[in-house]
Design a protein around this nucleic acid. Sequence first.
DNA 1: CATGAATGAGAGTTCATTCAT
DNA 2: TATGAATGAACTCTCATTCAT
Lengths: 202, 202, 202, 202
Amino acid sequence: MENVKTREPQQKRSIEKKNRIIETGFRLMCENGYQKTTTADIAKAAGVSTGIIYSYFKDKRDIFIYGLEAYAKHMLLPIYDRITPDLDVYSALNAIIDSLIEGHKVFQHAHKEIEALTMTDEVIAGIMFETELQITKQLELLLAQAGFDATDLPEKTHIMYNLVESLCHELTFHQHEGLNDAKMRQIVTDTIIFLLGKPVIS
Amino acid sequence: MENVKTREPQQKRSIEKKNRIIETGFRLMCENGYQKTTTADIAKAAGVSTGIIYSYFKDKRDIFIYGLEAYAKHMLLPIYDRITPDLDVYSALNAIIDSLIEGHKVFQHAHKEIEALTMTDEVIAGIMFETELQITKQLELLLAQAGFDATDLPEKTHIMYNLVESLCHELTFHQHEGLNDAKMRQIVTDTIIFLLGKPVIS
Amino acid sequence: MENVKTREPQQKRSIEKKNRIIETGFRLMCENGYQKTTTADIAKAAGVSTGIIYSYFKDKRDIFIYGLEAYAKHMLLPIYDRITPDLDVYSALNAIIDSLIEGHKVFQHAHKEIEALTMTDEVIAGIMFETELQITKQLELLLAQAGFDATDLPEKTHIMYNLVESLCHELTFHQHEGLNDAKMRQIVTDTIIFLLGKPVIS
Amino acid sequence: MENVKTREPQQKRSIEKKNRIIETGFRLMCENGYQKTTTADIAKAAGVSTGIIYSYFKDKRDIFIYGLEAYAKHMLLPIYDRITPDLDVYSALNAIIDSLIEGHKVFQHAHKEIEALTMTDEVIAGIMFETELQITKQLELLLAQAGFDATDLPEKTHIMYNLVESLCHELTFHQHEGLNDAKMRQIVTDTIIFLLGKPVIS
DNA sequence: CATGAATGAGAGTTCATTCAT
DNA sequence: TATGAATGAACTCTCATTCAT
């Protein structure tokens, strides 16, 4: 039996409204912090009343969860989409980096707030964990298929993922003056290629 | 322009009390989240009254700032201490990694909460930025002195710092099953050495 | 001075709908408490929209008032109906008790909630007062006509009414284990006959 | 392990304050209804801030429970106190009636609101049930010891209790005009004596 | 006539901060 | 200095009522 209090909007306008609340709410929470964002803030920014929020969402946290899932999808989908069988591993790698950078740009400050909530909220932690797992599994698969040595692949993949994550963060926020974007990206891809070693076959 | 309300404790016992509040408070905030930690929790855990906290600190955030500064010092000091002129660059590198891992272990979950607060609090952001700057500058200096090619050194250093950061995080929390600690560390140091390239003057 | 907002339904279907709202709403309010019953609950249970309720009723309280009046009628009517001139006083008494027990069974928990609302709502208090008055007056009349001594009749009638009320309550809810229904009823009727004393004439 | 959020006041002033909140809160809830009484109302009437209420009580309902327990104690204690071995059964009966009337006078409107909450709150229902049980058991014991016929004693006691309850209610609130207090009381005691029958051992 | 999405005032509760002792 | 009781603004969430369709 479904939740009886919140309802799934059927009308087009309602769906748009629900999405507007998710987008606005998640953005505010990520920009200003989960706790500092009040339901009144979200309602005002989304142009709705506070009451309607509780027609679509169980509670404030529910908005964040929905936003987080959209965020995860936004990060994952392009990866699946861009990796086609005819792509060589280097192009695929670049496609993945592009995807993640784009995801960061769209969701701005999301990452830090999510990481913090990960500590105290198991559901949120679970979603993030699963997302990261999907991405790294995808990377491992890609590399294994391309014939790269599978030795220490999980460890290498994890490190590569973190390298790309950090790169995305810097390229998105430019917190450190004097760093050259192109150079950063070049170094990261070089490093990943170094980590990959040479393909075993050929 | 001194703060008139809070005072700098002169007595030995008072100093101990202030430090106890900082340590306990910062730990609780990092473990359970800044917002979820109440001043009452801190007072109880530190064995003091809620009132006395406001003799030593301007507000709750002030406790966090003090804790953060201690944390930063804790991360930085060992780096300075362990890098002696007679050390070769590889040993120095390992010493730095050891220092940062240790720092992570001591301050546990601190990082995530700090990162989140960085977004909305400029002072906190400033402290973290300065700390990272100090570490990377130290690394750059170390490497330059050791005769490594200074080309793209800021970019490389930044990437190395992130590599080590991620490593520390994984070694401390072991969030991802199936990853081998020793291998991870080996790969990271290998990667750093790869990034360093060869010293210009052989 | 007619209410301009709500209207008196003319169509047969509308009348049925209004009655369904009254029945369902009053039942829910009595079972779960007035405050705990929401207009959404009533609408859902009655199979109508929340909006339509405000076409038939001024507000939520109005539904209760209507239900209460129906309840009062339900308690009173059988008393009038069952007391025919040819009935002796003892049979009439039993008929009244039967009527009240039946009323209780139909409206279940109504009494307690009504009593509580009586305190704060003068209209509700008035309806209940009037109902009780009708019943006791009816009793007084019945007894006077049957030739019983009219000394202290109002006081006696009031006490008899309460006796029957309590009896009905216990017979309906059986809250106290170990009490025998038949014995209770027997004792109550015996007590009433004791209270009545002997008819003056004959 | 005790509740960690609410504390048991140790200081005399604190105990007084807690009691003031209970008295004021319970009175307001009984006079105006549980739902209509807000925590702000209680705080204002008790001359405290809303916050302090939650130092002494888990929630609003907790205040009511405390008040209810005090009410029950107030009803029961005088019964135990006034029934001494040397008292004949008629004097004891009068003592009980006096006790209950007094209880009603002190707690005013309490009864109705309590009855209503009994429906939806098991804890409240339990307290009331236990109180009534204590009183009826006391009555049964008293009568059995006095040598009255124990036939149908539980049923008779229950009816007597209700008789007294109704009497108290009327004597306290005088809702029905034209009824004479003294006569009412006389009739009730007469009825009880009738119910008692004659002591078995002459 | 009917719908049910939308409103927004107001509820209970929390907690950083203050202050009488 | 130190206490912890007290404050009250601000939070999340509810629901009787309204209104666009």
